[in-house]
Amino acid sequence: MTSTHESPAPNPHATAEQVEAAMKDSKLAQVLYHDWEAESYDDKWSISYDQRCVDYARGRFDAAVPDEVQRELPYDRALELGCGTGFFLLNLIQAGVARRGSVTDLSPGMVKVATRNGQGLGLDIDGRVADAEGIPYEDNTFDLVVGHAVLHHIPDVELSLREVVRVLKPGGRFIFAGEPTTVGNRYARELSTLTWRIATNVTKLPGLREWRRPQTELDESSRAAALEAVVDLHTFDPADLERMARNAGAVEIRTASEEFTAAMLGWPVRTFEAAVPPGKLGWGWAKFAFGSWTSLSWVDANVWRRVVPKGWFYNVMVTGVKPESPAEAAGS
């Protein structure tokens, strides 16, 4: 069963005036940017709802959550903040982490796509446009709250975590994955910028122009990138995330990080893919890119994690639990 709460309509074609206004209003920027991206977002980020991404989502959950919790799955009702197209929660449900869920996002376009994706998968999902700093659900509603690459978009992260703890049932858990570290974000952006410059200039050369997207598409990507710089508000040190979760009232807080060499490959690959015409690279490229990322992720997890500081990896995850009682909260 899938239903959508009455919500504002998506706006995938923002005017120049709206974009200009969004440069001074981060929440408007969030809505315009993500409405703009909603219908093409899965393709852009190679998101799917098959075994590949089911395994990826479950892997992020397992990396952050203690083994004893994993043996007691599934949770009954889950909430995803900043759901995008539903990637994290829909795949976690398919992976057996939860039975049913609610997807929320500030972008009407993303909520529309996420609930449509849930319907296509036959999952028990409802969707609602919602601000993560004021989650529109009652206290003690959910057994699990999740998010992927969402906290860095929220102006007041600690306020949002307080809201997360509020809507969780006592003993309920949250997990947020895919958040950029301060160090990781620096090298990812530098590598992406360099790759974009090289790709868009080399494809101007005779004999390589068939590899170049039309200039109007490149210009639109540049405008989207300008908005992206407005919507990406934070980077994190793992210790800072732990502190904010503790201040929000959570207990049993843990962080984990991933993607070191995998990010150094992944960001140039994604940027190159955005610079060339869709479909130009083919299945062979997709297989190479995913296989290489998977291999480097293994190296990161089994080799570099032993010697490289947690904050140097690109992604950080945080998980915590709502106290069962006031005494437990006071003891945290």
Rank of each mutant, 00 (worst) to 15 (best):
T4M: 12
S7A: 10
P8K: 06
P12M: 03
A14L: 06
E20F: 04
M23V: 04
S26M: 02
K27W: 06
D43V: 09
W45R: 10
S48D: 15
R71E: 15
P74I: 04
R77Y: 13
R77P: 01
T85C: 10
F87R: 13
L89Q: 02
N91Y: 09
R100D: 08
G101W: 04
S102G: 04
V103R: 06
P108H: 04
P108K: 06
G109P: 00
L123P: 11
I135G: 10
P136V: 04
E138K: 14
D139S: 12
T141F: 11
L144M: 04
A149L: 00
D156I: 02
E158K: 07
E163M: 08
G172D: 01
R173Y: 00
F174V: 05
F176M: 09
T181F: 05
T182F: 00
I198T: 14
T200W: 05
T203D: 05
L205S: 02
G207W: 07
L208V: 02
E210C: 07
E210V: 11
E217D: 14
E220P: 04
E220R: 12
S221N: 15
A224L: 10
D232T: 13
D232A: 10
T235I: 08
F236T: 08
F236A: 07
D237N: 14
A245T: 01
A248W: 02
R254W: 08
T255I: 00
A256Y: 03
A263N: 13
T271R: 14
F272T: 07
P277H: 06
P278M: 10
P278K: 15
G279S: 08
G282A: 09
F290V: 11
S295F: 14
V303W: 13
R305K: 14
R305M: 09
K310M: 10
W312A: 10
E324P: 00
P326L: 07
A327V: 11
A329V: 03
A330N: 02
